[in-house]
Amino acid sequence: MSSTLDQRLIELFQHPRIQGCNWQPRLFWHPAADGSAFGPLRVDGRELEVFLATIIGEPSTEQAALDQEQEGRGRFIAANARRHELPLFTRR
């Protein structure tokens, strides 16, 4: 995963709408070696980007690629987000 996507995921996660869900970072990230909350991802970063962006109401930068590579996976995750359902993400 690129550092650009890493940074985008952290920014999306820190958005007030996401923070209002009361999810802890450890749901999506392993703790970093230095003890910070945002270490290596537990889940596919592209799927998480689609999910978080949809909740916030921003266009996803990853949905089109997921849809093409995995036959609609991006649309499926976005639909889960719109229904306020936490999808089963692909583990890393």
Rank of each mutant, 00 (worst) to 15 (best):
L9Y: 08
Q24L: 11
V50A: 07
C21W: 05
C21I: 08
D6A: 12
R8T: 15
Q19G: 07
G72P: 00
W29A: 10
R42V: 13
P25S: 11
Q68P: 00
R26I: 14
L12E: 11
L41R: 03
A53I: 08
L27S: 04
I10C: 06
N22S: 15
A64L: 06
R8K: 12
W23G: 02
T4F: 02
T90N: 01
E11Q: 12
M1E: 15
R82E: 14
E11L: 13
F38K: 03
R75K: 03
T54Q: 05
I18V: 15
A32D: 14
Q68H: 05
E49Q: 14
G74T: 06
R75W: 00
M1K: 05
F38L: 12
V43C: 09
R92T: 14
S60Y: 03
L9V: 08
T61R: 02
E85H: 07
R92L: 12
I77K: 04
P25R: 10
P40N: 15
D34M: 09
H84K: 11
Q14P: 00
R83D: 14
F28C: 11
I10F: 03
I56F: 01
R91E: 13
A81R: 01
F13I: 12
Q24A: 13
F28N: 01
S2T: 15
I18D: 06
F51H: 09
S2C: 05
R92D: 09
I18G: 03
F51Y: 15
T54I: 05
G35M: 09
H15Y: 03
Q68L: 13
Q70C: 04
N80I: 00
L48F: 08
E49K: 04
G45N: 07
E62V: 05
E85A: 14
R73I: 06
V50S: 01
T4A: 15
A32K: 08
R73V: 11
P40K: 11
L52K: 09
L27F: 03
R46S: 12
Q70L: 13
S3V: 13
S36Y: 04
P31W: 03
T4D: 09
H84Y: 10
D34L: 13
Q63T: 09
P16A: 11
G39W: 02
I55H: 03
P25D: 12
F38T: 10
R73F: 03
R75C: 04
A78P: 00
E69M: 12
I55Y: 02
A33C: 06
A53P: 00
A78I: 02
D44G: 04
G20V: 09
